[in-house]
Computed example of a mutant assay.
Amino acid sequence: MTRFVTPTLAGLMALLVWSTATAQTPAVPSLTQNPPPIPVGRVTVSASAVFADNNQPIRSGLVWRVYEDRGDTVQPNIVSRSSSPTPTFNLSPGNYIMHAAYGFAGASKRLSVQAGILTERLTISAGALRLKGAVGESPIQPNKVSFAIYVPMAQNSEGRLVIANAKANEVIRLPEGTYHVVSTYGDANAIMRSDLKVESGRVTEATLNHRAATVTLKLVGSAGGEAFAGTAFSVLTPGGDVIREAIGAFPSVTLAEGDYVLIARHEGKVHTRDFKVESGLDRDIEIVVPPT
């Protein structure tokens, strides 16, 4: 008898984590779609997965695992795995749990395998995100922007973290639902947030638009002159909060649009100036050392 399991998002995430932790367990290789003759006493199980909303087949991005089912109180052993979209498993008669992971989404099903050739289809409520960053009409280079993705939760402004450092243009497979996305441009305070909906069977593409610019910090003897090496810079808000610190002749920092205070320390002397960051206007910020 075949019995369905309807896992929760948390349950699927836990199963994925557990599967990763057991990845070193020796696995029985899965068969291809053109298997050799089935040994006596074995059962062939062919599997496939579809999207929940339209029953369209999932043709890529799947990872299949088959576990020996020894009851709810005993941790199951993995007996086979495959990354084929339509794998075929050669199993001994018995009880199993079949799980298909689609990125951070997935579905599972309990199987009672006795004889013959079985065909199983899992339904997954999942879609994907593809994210980009931009400043105005100018795209941000993918290596300069990253994304954190959260599941919204009650009484929590961001929610539970799902992915800490997703890359631009990456296809991020997720369970169907709404997510809170935080985009960070550079490594300072250029941050944008958005709530995005993932629909089953669809790739949601979104561009998070930053109001920011990259400035190059310099301590010079005259306007446009050569920068002094070994200068320690601090970028502060007008209220005194430190945003970024750097050491060098001309370090660069990406900052959100707004007003700032720059402090430069060199050879025991401290120099300061106020400056403004305008979105999309990359430029040098110089402090000119007054003549002695």
Rank of each mutant, 00 (worst) to 15 (best):
residue 3 R to C: 07
residue 5 V to S: 07
residue 10 A to I: 11
residue 13 M to S: 07
residue 14 A to Q: 15
residue 18 W to L: 12
residue 18 W to V: 11
residue 20 T to E: 10
residue 20 T to W: 07
residue 21 A to H: 13
residue 24 Q to M: 06
residue 36 P to V: 08
residue 36 P to S: 09
residue 37 P to I: 05
residue 38 I to R: 10
residue 38 I to P: 03
residue 44 T to M: 11
residue 45 V to I: 04
residue 48 S to P: 06
residue 57 P to H: 10
residue 63 V to W: 02
residue 63 V to P: 01
residue 63 V to T: 15
residue 64 W to E: 02
residue 66 V to G: 04
residue 69 D to M: 02
residue 74 V to Y: 14
residue 74 V to A: 15
residue 77 N to I: 11
residue 77 N to S: 11
residue 78 I to L: 09
residue 80 S to Q: 14
residue 80 S to L: 09
residue 85 P to H: 06
residue 101 A to P: 02
residue 102 Y to A: 04
residue 104 F to M: 13
residue 106 G to Q: 05
residue 112 S to E: 15
residue 113 V to C: 01
residue 115 A to L: 08
residue 116 G to N: 00
residue 117 I to D: 11
residue 121 R to Q: 13
residue 123 T to F: 04
residue 126 A to D: 08
residue 129 L to Q: 06
residue 131 L to A: 07
residue 132 K to L: 10
residue 133 G to A: 13
residue 135 V to Q: 01
residue 135 V to P: 00
residue 136 G to M: 04
residue 137 E to Q: 11
residue 140 I to V: 14
residue 143 N to K: 14
residue 144 K to C: 05
residue 145 V to Q: 00
residue 155 Q to P: 01
residue 157 S to Y: 10
residue 162 V to F: 04
residue 164 A to I: 05
residue 164 A to K: 08
residue 166 A to P: 09
residue 168 A to H: 03
residue 169 N to T: 09
residue 170 E to R: 09
residue 181 V to L: 06
residue 183 S to I: 08
residue 184 T to P: 01
residue 184 T to M: 06
residue 184 T to D: 04
residue 185 Y to H: 13
residue 186 G to S: 10
residue 189 N to G: 05
residue 189 N to H: 01
residue 192 M to N: 09
residue 193 R to Y: 05
residue 202 R to A: 11
residue 206 A to M: 06
residue 207 T to A: 09
residue 210 H to T: 00
residue 218 K to H: 14
residue 220 V to K: 03
residue 221 G to A: 08
residue 223 A to R: 11
residue 225 G to C: 10
residue 226 E to V: 15
residue 233 F to D: 03
residue 235 V to W: 00
residue 235 V to H: 04
residue 239 G to D: 07
residue 241 D to Q: 15
residue 244 R to P: 00
residue 245 E to F: 05
residue 246 A to Q: 10
residue 252 S to Y: 11
residue 252 S to M: 15
residue 254 T to M: 06
residue 254 T to D: 03
residue 257 E to S: 04
residue 257 E to M: 02
residue 259 D to C: 00
residue 262 L to Q: 06
residue 263 I to P: 04
residue 274 D to T: 09
residue 275 F to L: 03
residue 276 K to D: 04
residue 277 V to M: 00
residue 279 S to F: 00
residue 283 R to S: 12
residue 286 E to N: 05
residue 287 I to S: 03
residue 287 I to M: 09
residue 287 I to K: 01
